[in-house]
Design a protein around this nucleic acid. Structure first.
Length: 887
RNA sequence: GCCCGGAUGGCGGAAUUGGUAGACGCGCUGGUCUCAAACACCAGUGGCAGCAAUGCUGUGCCGGUUCGAUCCCGGCUCCGGGUACCA
């Protein structure tokens, strides 16, 4: 029978849809549950890319396998549909973004269904649906009404916030100010990244290291605007600790840890000469205080003006002005030539009472630590560079642990920077009574920190790189904030029963040049009044795209609930997500934001788990072949021709080099899943994407590889669909062994997401079966089930041809039998000095002595031993025999 | 600079993480079928030498540990990802 994949796939897709085969079980008593989630796509106008099916097929295989293993499976799909492209299209054409979005969703849905992915479409969600974003707004209100109790390390309702007595006395305005200062969501002036091209504010995370906007590549600027911010740093410690328990790739965990950027040290107070103020610095190396020869404050530091003495005012102000004009790109420029200016004033080093100059320099950042540092040029590379440039003293206080005596001398003389450990020198002072000379780093830090504490000069302190999350965008196509700014300055959140707050229809979608969102054009929507006639204005910013994707996995559990965000019993049953697969580009942002919201919801008793995603896996990118000339210029794919495995330019005839690059329109090497499906079928596309290589690595698409798996599927179908090949009665022993081997291999590989080797094992089995010419019905059925998660359409068809009337989606997975896998004989490799020379078949239960005896008696062994005497013979049972001969 | 990851045939990749390197697939070569091609099927395929048996060599480079190293340790080179004046 021919492998008519078009007909087979269409028929089974219809069957699954008509029968709602993949409807999520309602019965929540099955203790085996599995929540398998994909990172839901942004439905772009271009349709599905071959990168999408990679992750989707992986979760689909896992889902289908778990169903056969008797699990209740939740496997949903939806659309992260707020976003800039639909809005920009609206600006150009006037088409409402919801129309564009719905069209794109239709395309995506059709394409995904054509891949035979086993989603429960009754659970489909769309972040732009008011029934969905009602609850996004609702969560924002929860954040607004939550404060973080530092002692208990958890979020609590704002109603439980106790007012300090001194605040309570100050009156309503100060009380509100105090409460607002504790809310997880707050509204404030913020120096923000502004993309003049997109006319939009960007989060720190959306600005690339070269100062360009992630979305459009144009350069961003700083702008001071009123913005909504979320206090994610309060959860830094929880977010950091939570990472340890997660079954995530170590690399991703490291990236999150680095992003959170915890560092321990101390805050130290320095007295300022002639000012009744302390200058507080944060340092990770309080032990190096004796080497602190100057101090630096950020240009934006609040004390800058007070510290600068009269004579230096002009020069310092000029410097501050110059740095503020610098874009951050220049400020973090590669050259990083340090600049700075002396304030004219001195601080007192607490450990030795020495006067040290205070400088202003932009290599000290205002947003980290206290915005001021003590500079230890001998042991910090940045300070060293600065001190050299401005001729500031460099005092070495650690005897470097280096063997090179010249280098050692340079370091001791302050001519070279030493950042490693070493025993302290020059680190004692009679007037203060401290002496850490001879100690090493750990002891020194502990000693000095303790001393600072007892003298009230400083305290141990932990700092994080993680900053407040800028949460508003000057955009139309996003969730409106459920808040009102009243004319008297009060800000209130809307009542939960007034949600959702929908977007107004607009004539024009273009944002203002000044940073005003397009919503400010909609006066009717914008202006409100309360029952007392007090006038107010709605927030014109909208939420960033992260908002909808921060919690969608929760709504999937109960997507149609219009009474509450989700049913708590259902949440308790399904959470946490057991497997989450998506691209590594979300390693920090989405996953960190999402974990933050989840923890807040957990603290408020809304969710039952502390972490949302128990197991995470990142699929690698799929690249494509591209071609370039010897000089390295790229050649479009349609201008390349292949001759005898070599590549040439069709027009110039030049020899071309095959390289691997991202798929791009300009290189004409974009692979469209629709083309692959129509040529080879969805099962082939699925199988190829899984067979290309390990799921997590980047790998190039190769059309010829699709043909390979297509051939395998064709052979499988032709063999198993032919009744002549299917027999009754006892199965051949070798086939039984191979069958159980493939069951075991596939099972283990699916659990570990190693689909490429699972497929290879199935190929090996089929090769054996075709060689044998026939298999029993039982074997055919079992192998069909093994294949089912990977090539579900064909497996259903075979299952049907083998005499079944129902879907095999819930057929119990056949457990492999270890008995069948046992070997009686092992083919021992015999090696001499580690080099394999010949093999010898021996029963598996022989003793070492017996093995040695038989091997040494072998003619081939005699040849290799010759006249020598083996000095040692190593026998590893059922592994190897190694004979050691010394010459 | 710092933090991760990687380097195995012509290509994608396997190897129970110390025990037969190159599974499986692609490509290539030869053959069967065909008027021919495509499809399908059979055989071969790391490199070098040899008609062959077989031998030598081989997992980015240098060195080490070991009876034995793709795997462990030390030192490099190159490639990919993240991040960056975070004190």
């Amino acid at each position: 029978m021919d492998y008519n994949f078009h007909e087979i796939e269409k028929r089974w897709q219809k069957y699954w849809e008509d029968n709602k085969t993949f409807k999520t079980p309602e019965d929540l008593t099955n203790p085996k549950k599995c929540y398998i989630l994909d990172m839901f796509p942004y439905p772009s106008g271009a349709g599905l890319h071959v990168g999408h099916p990679e992750g989707y097929t992986a979760t689909d295989i896992f889902s289908r396998y778990k169903r056969m293993k008797g699990f209740n499976v939740l496997h949903p799909m939806g659309w992260d549909a707020f976003g800039l492209p639909a809005e920009q299209y609206a600006i150009q054409t006037g088409t409402h973004p919801s129309i564009t979005t719905n069209n794109n969703c239709d395309t995506f849905r059709r394409q995904i269904k054509e891949l035979g992915l086993s989603y429960d479409w009754d659970k489909e969600i769309n972040t732009t649906d008011p029934g969905y974003f009602k609850w996004t707004q609702w969560i924002f209100i929860q954040l607004y009404n939550t404060w973080f109790d530092d002692k208990l390390q958890r979020g609590r309702p704002i109603s439980e916030l106790k007012l300090p007595e001194n605040i309570a006395k100050l009156g309503q305005k100060e009380i509100v100010k105090y409460i607002d200062s504790k809310r997880l969501a707050y509204y404030d002036n913020a120096l923000v990244w502004w993309c003049p091209s997109c006319r939009i504010v960007c989060a720190n995370e959306e600005v690339m290291t070269d100062g360009s906007h992630e979305k459009c590549g144009n350069r961003v600027e700083k702008k001071n605007l009123k913005q909504w911010m979320l206090r994610i740093p309060l959860y830094a410690e929880r977010l950091l600790k939570g990472i340890d328990k997660l079954d995530w790739p170590e690399g991703i965990k490291d990236m999150q840890r680095n992003w959170i950027g915890r560092s321990t040290g101390a805050e130290v107070d320095f007295k300022i000469e002639g000012l009744n103020e302390n200058l507080t610095v944060f340092t990770t190396r309080p032990d190096t205080l004796f080497g602190a020869t100057y101090m630096v404050i950020a240009p934006e530091h609040p004390l800058t003006d007070a510290i600068t003495i009269h004579d230096n005012k002009n020069s310092v102000n000029d410097y501050i002005k110059a740095t503020s004009l610098k874009s951050d790109l220049d400020r973090t420029d590669l050259a990083k030539e340090k600049t700075g200016i002396f304030t004219g004033r001195y601080a007192i080093n607490p450990v030795n009472k020495k006067q040290i100059p205070i400088w202003v320099a932009d290599y000290v950042l205002t947003g980290y630590g206290t915005g001021a540092i003590m500079a230890v040029p001998a042991h910090d590379t940045r300070d060293f560079e600065f001190a050299q440039k401005f001729n500031l003293p460099i005092v070495c206080i650690q005897d470097p642990d280096v063997s090179d005596s010249e280098q050692k001398k340079r370091i001791l003389d302050g001519k070279e920077c030493w950042t490693e450990d070493g025993k302290y020198i020059n680190s004692s002072d009679k007037s203060t009574g401290i002496d850490i000379n001879g100690m090493n780093k750990d002891a020194g830090i502990a000693h000095i920190t303790r001393w600072l504490g007892t003298k009230n000069l400083g305290t141990a302190k932990v700092n994080y790189k993680l900053r407040d999350w800028l949460f508003s965008r000057q955009r139309y196509w996003g969730e409106p904030f459920p808040v009102i700014h009243w004319e008297d300055g009060e800000i209130t959140a809307m009542n939960e029963n007034e949600l959702p707050l929908e977007l107004p229809k607009l004539e024009k979608y273009l944002p203002g040049e000044t940073g005003e969102s397009p919503l400010s054009n909609s006066t009717e929507w914008l202006n409100v009044a309360d029952k007392n006639g007090r006038k107010g204005r709605r927030e014109t910013n909208t939420m960033p795209q992260w908002a909808g994707s921060c919690w969608y996995y929760l709504r999937f559990i109960d997507p149609k609930n219009d009474k509450i965000i989700f049913d708590l019993t259902k949440e308790k049953y399904w959470m946490p997500v057991d497997l989450y697969i998506g691209g590594a580009e979300h390693a920090v942002l989405h996953l960190l934001y999402s974990r933050f919201w989840h923890k807040v919801l957990f603290d408020l008793g809304i969710v039952s788990t502390d972490e949302p995603y128990q197991r995470l896996f990142n699929q690698g990118m799929i690249l494509a072949f591209a071609y370039e000339t010897e000089s390295g210029s790229k050649v479009s794919g349609d201008l390349v021709e292949e001759r005898e495995g070599k590549y040439f330019h069709k027009e110039t005839g030049d020899k071309l080099k095959q390289i691997v690059a991202k798929m791009s329109k300009s290189l004409k090497n974009v692979v469209n899943p629709d083309d692959v499906t129509s040529k080879y079928g969805a099962d082939s596309l699925r199988l190829y994407e899984m067979f290309m290589g390990p799921l997590d690595v980047t790998k190039p698409w190769d059309d010829k590889g699709v043909k390979g798996v297509f051939g395998f599927l064709g052979r499988t179908f032709r063999f198993l669909s032919n009744p002549e090949n299917i027999t009754k009665g006892e199965e051949d022993g070798e086939v039984v062994k191979a069958l159980h081997h493939v069951i075991k291999k596939v099972e283990g590989d699916i659990e570990n997401l190693r689909f490429n080797t699972a497929i290879s094992a199935m190929m090996i089995f089929l090769n054996l079966a075709t060689k044998k010419g026939k298999v029993t019905v039982d074997t055919a059925c079992i192998f069909t089930k093994v294949l089912a998660p990977f090539a579900p359409h064909m497996a259903e068809e075979l299952w049907h041809l083998l005499g079944h009337n129902e879907t095999l989606s819930y057929e119990p997975w056949t457990e492999f039998n270890e008995e069948f896998l046992k070997e009686d004989i092992f083919d021992y490799p015999v090696s001499f000095n580690g080099k394999m020379r010949f093999k010898i078949e021996l029963p598996v239960n022989l003793s070492k002595e017996e093995i040695i005896k038989i091997v040494l008696a072998d003619e081939r062994a005699k040849k290799w031993i010759g006249t020598a005497t083996p000095s040692n013979i190593i026998v590893v049972p059922n592994r190897i025999v190694n004979i050691v001969i010394k010459n």
